[in-house]
């Protein structure tokens, strides 16, 4: 397989831009989805609990 330099540049300038934007949108949706709020709040508070044993 031989990819020419021009093909690579074209790919980087088109697909490269769009997949990053699409990915950014997906991450923002995940982070701000109201359904995830409780899960995130629990996660950040749970690490402060001091019990030092694995849960069974």
């Amino acid at each position: 397989m031989d990819v020419s330099h021009d093909t690579l540049v074209a790919l980087a300038k088109s697909w490269g831009l769009f997949y990053l934007i699409a990915f950014a949108v997906a991450v923002v949706i995940y982070a701000y989805r109201p359904a995830n709020r409780a899960r995130f709040n629990a996660a950040k508070k749970d690490i402060l609990e001091q019990d030092d044993r694995p849960w069974r």
């Binding site: 990915f23 991450v27 923002v28 995940y30 982070a31 996660a43 950040k44 402060l48």
Partner: peptide
């Protein structure tokens, strides 16, 4: 992990930590 644990306070914004991770 260690900064919130040592400070005894949860991270300021969990959402921001996810955005900055990606």
């Amino acid at each position: 992990y260690y900064l919130p644990v040592r400070a005894g306070r949860p991270i300021f914004s969990y959402r921001l930590s996810i955005l900055s991770f990606w």
